[in-house]
Simulated assay, not measured.
Amino acid sequence: MGISALLNVVDVEATCWDGEPPPGQVHEIIEIGLTVVDLDRGERVGRHRILVRPARSSVSAFCTELTGLTRAEVATGVGFAEACRQLAVEHRAGERPWASWGDYDRNQFTRQCRATGTRYPFGRHHTNAKAVFTEAHGLRRRPGMAGALEFAGLPLEGRHHSGEDDAWNIAALVLGLAARGDWPGSPGAPTG
Rank of each mutant, 00 (worst) to 15 (best):
E20V: 12
P184V: 04
H125R: 15
R47F: 12
L87M: 14
E157R: 15
A5N: 11
G147T: 14
I29S: 07
F109R: 04
A131M: 11
G68W: 05
G77Y: 04
R92G: 13
E82S: 12
L154R: 08
D166S: 09
I30T: 09
L66M: 09
C63Q: 03
I50Q: 07
I29C: 06
G24R: 11
V36I: 13
G42A: 03
L149A: 03
S100H: 00
A83L: 03
L139I: 05
E31R: 01
H137P: 00
E82F: 06
R56V: 00
T70N: 05
A81F: 03
S162I: 02
G181H: 04
H137N: 09
P22I: 12
D103A: 14
R142E: 14
A75W: 04
H137C: 06
G2K: 13
L175K: 05
V12C: 15
G192E: 06
L51G: 11
H91L: 12
D166N: 08
G46W: 07
G176F: 01
L173E: 13
G185K: 06
E95R: 15
E150A: 15
E95C: 12
G102C: 03
A93E: 06
A72V: 03
G153W: 08
Y104Q: 13
E82W: 06
G33I: 14
P23C: 07
S57C: 11
N169V: 15
D11K: 02
V36W: 00
A88V: 09
G68T: 05
H91G: 00
G46V: 10
T67D: 03
N8D: 13
C63R: 04
I170G: 01
W168R: 12
D11R: 04
L69V: 03
L177I: 03
G181F: 02
D105A: 02
G163I: 07
C113W: 08
A179H: 04
R49D: 06
P23G: 06
G94F: 07
A148W: 01
A14H: 04
T118N: 08
T127A: 11
C16Q: 10
G176Q: 10
L6K: 15
A171W: 11
I170Y: 03
E43A: 13
L69Y: 02
S186T: 01
P22L: 14
T110Q: 14
G188L: 00
A152L: 02
R53K: 14
G176K: 06
V74R: 05
